[in-house]
Simulated assay, not measured.
Amino acid sequence: MKLMFSLLLFAVSISVSAKEINISDTNISFVAPDEFQPLSQEMIDIKWPQKNAPEWVVGNSTASTTIAYGLKNNDNSDADLSELMTYFKTTFDRMVPGIEWIKRDIIQLSGKRWLYLEMTSNAVNADIHNIMLLTSYGEEMLIFNFNSTKDDFPKYETRLRESIQTIQLPN
């Protein structure tokens, strides 16, 4: 029953029109690769078993490449993004096995400043390539995580980077 309710909530929470995805109760949208579909709650629970699962996830048929996104109750609207970047680097360096940083930057996207973190790391069953984007949205933190196995990343890299460029926030 809980799973059915969660799946129903998930289905209502996003609307997928062709490739465009709109985040529930916001005017935030982005375009995902054509074949990406919403992951079931069961698949989300398997992929993120530590109870820190994202609100919404779309991905390929095997969930080896996904785009996770959501809003967190962390008001970072007044945060200095350079300090936030240092915080995430320090925290990830301690907690993420085998982390190798590719890029850490502050970028401009859809009229806002975003923290951009790109890294590879070791997971239990595969090596991972992550691109994380974080910004403020009202009094919440908006997070996107473009996540792929290292084996899949070359196949999806161009489409994931194109998807990043399609993120739209309301003015």
Rank of each mutant, 00 (worst) to 15 (best):
M1S: 09
G111Q: 09
G70L: 11
S64C: 06
I102N: 06
N27M: 14
D80H: 06
Y156V: 10
Y87C: 06
D34V: 13
S148V: 09
Q168F: 02
K112R: 13
T86F: 02
R159N: 14
D127F: 01
S13Q: 07
L9W: 09
P154I: 10
L160Y: 06
L84F: 06
F36W: 07
N27T: 13
D93G: 09
I167F: 01
Y156L: 06
F153M: 12
P97H: 05
M141L: 14
D152R: 05
L117T: 05
Y69N: 02
K2Q: 08
L109S: 09
Q41L: 13
K89V: 15
S29A: 12
S148G: 04
K150M: 12
Y116S: 12
W114H: 10
L142R: 01
Q41E: 15
L3Y: 03
N76R: 04
F92N: 10
E55M: 02
K103W: 00
E20K: 12
V12E: 09
T158Y: 03
E83K: 08
P170C: 00
Q168V: 13
T91V: 11
D105E: 15
T158M: 07
T62Q: 03
L71G: 02
T62M: 02
K47S: 10
G70R: 03
L133Y: 07
Q41C: 14
T91W: 02
K51I: 01
T66G: 00
Q165L: 14
I167H: 00
